[in-house]
Design a protein around this nucleic acid. Structure first.
Lengths: 113, 113
DNA sequence: ATCATTAATCGTAATTATACGATGAAGATA
DNA sequence: TATCTTCATCGTATAATTACGATTAATGAT
């Protein structure tokens, strides 16, 4: 079933193909998810409710977005019912940041006049 | 109408909100589009046909992907029928690279133990 | 004039994404 | 035990994405 938050196939920037990159970008392709990510980063840790209080979306929708972010490995979850604490997966995010930077820059280093 | 390749609202990294970021990430959220982008970067300039020859997708599909990449501002088009030459929008891509890097890093600079 | 090449667009089908309300599960508290 | 809070999941409706073949448009070559 599905890949957990710490998926080994995403650990090494150099083994990240177009498929893996697309998954990460897809997770970032929704404005609500970007806001959620920023909110978590700002508050370091937070639960679904705090985000629901701040964004104009239903709790079930937020929960679903959190799931997508988790499956892409961008955040981690720690559940102690009835609460779930979400936080940024810093290690992976840093790796993704580097990969993205390298990828985009590799598209720019030519001189097509 | 719609936004052309050099959309002023995307020119400044600091004015890029979650909505604008999501558009860029959405354009990058498809493996075929990543491959297309890499192919264009590798060959500096190329037409739809060269990409169609290399990817297992129909010409109409490639053309559609190119349109998405163009609307997101990642590539520019120069059409002299019956050809269209695509190339990387380096300036915008560099700006996007910086924005993405800054955004992802801003999510990592806390210490939530 | 006819044909070939290249690429955009249209129509369409299948899949995926997004959002919601309702429900269920887990534990804390009255 | 009954109630509250928090969150995940289910079912569902709507919209967007992805892909294809067919068609059209523009130009160059025969």
């Amino acid at each position: 079933m599905a890949n957990s938050s710490q998926d080994a196939t995403l650990a090494d920037p150099n083994t990240r193909g177009s498929q893996e990159m697309a998954v990460v970008f897809a997770a970032l392709s929704n404005p609500a998810r970007i806001e959620i990510l920023m909110h978590i980063a700002k508050h370091q840790c937070c639960g679904c409710k705090e985000i629901t209080d701040v964004l104009p979306l239903a709790q079930s929708t937020i929960s679903q977005h959190l799931k997508v972010l988790g499956e892409a490995g961008l955040i981690t979850v720690e559940t102690v019912p009835p609460r779930s604490r979400y936080q940024i997966n810093e290690q992976l995010l840093r790796s993704i940041s580097d990969t993205t930077h390298a990828f985009l820059n590799s598209c720019c280093k030519s001189d097509c006049s």
